[in-house]
Design a protein around this nucleic acid. Sequence first.
DNA 1: CTTGACCTTCCTGTGACTGGAAGGAATATC
DNA 2: GATATTCCTTCCAGTCACAGGAAGGTCAAG
Lengths: 130, 130
Amino acid sequence: MNIGSAAKMSGLPAKTIRYYEDIELIQPARAGNGYRDYSQTDVHRLRFLQRSRSLGFSIEECRSLLSLYEDKNRASADVKELALAKIEEVDRKIRELKSLKSTLSALASNCHGDERPDCPIMDDLAGRRL
Amino acid sequence: MNIGSAAKMSGLPAKTIRYYEDIELIQPARAGNGYRDYSQTDVHRLRFLQRSRSLGFSIEECRSLLSLYEDKNRASADVKELALAKIEEVDRKIRELKSLKSTLSALASNCHGDERPDCPIMDDLAGRRL
DNA sequence: CTTGACCTTCCTGTGACTGGAAGGAATATC
DNA sequence: GATATTCCTTCCAGTCACAGGAAGGTCAAG
């Protein structure tokens, strides 16, 4: 199947699929006319990549997951370890963003937000305490 | 003052300060020896940039904030609008990450995580329902 | 005089793509 | 058969916000 169909079936843009080939995540066959020719297995790999990327795994993590995926003897512990580390990471990001939000909210709620030029947000950005 | 001192006082790496000059966020004077020469005003701008970047504003948003900062007649409403939009954005990211986390947690808690090869995380990544 | 810290410019790399140009191939319509 | 449209190819550049490093000039201390 051509790259357009593989794109539709995997939910990835054709550009991205070519990029994944470039960094050697997939090696599709080539048809006589030079077009890439994707098998059902290729499409499975692409869907796997789409799903794991959407879960926030980096390309290199996806590469690890993929090799675990192809390894029939892998231990589920190896996979779980990656997942738990990713959960930690996501949790850290959430905490950072929450703290950011509360700072921004405090600034915004102290700002009258009218046509006057004085503004507590600006005062904070300029380094003055609230 | 030299870039090293400006870096210490602003909390920004020298590399970053040079980059900010490159994209025309600051225009320091030059000393006779070709070294950049930062005034107190320059350092204020740098601290302003450091703070607003750390609050999650993009470079272009910082550029807007800076021009509002230098405009003595700006309305606090303009500043508040930028802050509220940023809060929205942060909130959206938090929601996305939370949903991501709950998906990952569900997968991980269903995974026995031992030496056996079968693994619900893999099953999900491969496109099979739980 | 030499050492070492600091400064300069310029070039490259990061992550994960995205956009676009130039041109060949396949398909649909007339 | 000619034409038009769509799909495919490769290759190059751009994104964002810097970071790393090379090659070389400058300055203060010992």
